[in-house]
């Protein structure tokens, strides 16, 4: 249930973004950068958590558990990374398209 609330909050925040920023290409680029940053932050956080768990539990080898969870987080952040890159590429493409249209018009 709370996951759906978070999805809803993401949707609302993104819509607000596109309303506040008049240049939609800029808004798309910004959301792309945000997604990229979140993906990087997620990997960094996961790595830190993995280090903390590994250093606090010494009595058995829990690397199987931490590696399993780490890979799940890496897959998630990889998907976010790809989405972010695609968003930035689309915005760049739209910028260049607009630029070439302006050049032809002038």
């Amino acid at each position: 249930m709370s996951l759906y609330i978070m999805y809803f909050l993401i949707l609302i925040t993104t819509v607000l973004f596109f309303i506040i920023i008049k240049d939609k290409r800029k808004a798309l680029k910004l959301t792309g950068i945000i997604t990229l940053l979140s993906a990087i932050l997620l990997v960094v956080l996961t790595f830190i958590i993995k280090l903390i768990i590994n250093s606090s539990i010494n009595f058995i080898n829990i690397s199987i558990i931490t590696d399993y969870l780490f890979m799940k987080f890496v897959y998630t952040s990889l998907i976010m990374f790809i989405i972010g890159v695609v968003e930035i590429l689309i915005s760049k493409h739209l910028y260049s398209k607009k630029h070439s249209e302006n050049t032809i018009a002038s």
């Binding site: 709370s2 996951l3 978070m6 999805y7 909050l9 993401i10 925040t13 993104t14 607000l16 973004f17 506040i20 920023i21 910004l30 959301t31 945000i34 997604t35 940053l37 979140s38 932050l41 997620l42 956080l45 969870l69 799940k72 987080f73 998630t76 952040s77 976010m80």
Partner: peptide
Amino acid sequence: VIILSILLVGLYTVTSTYSV
């Protein structure tokens, strides 16, 4: 915009952690 960006980064991170 800055506040919304920070909020969105936080939301993305928390949601993806929760999803995993």
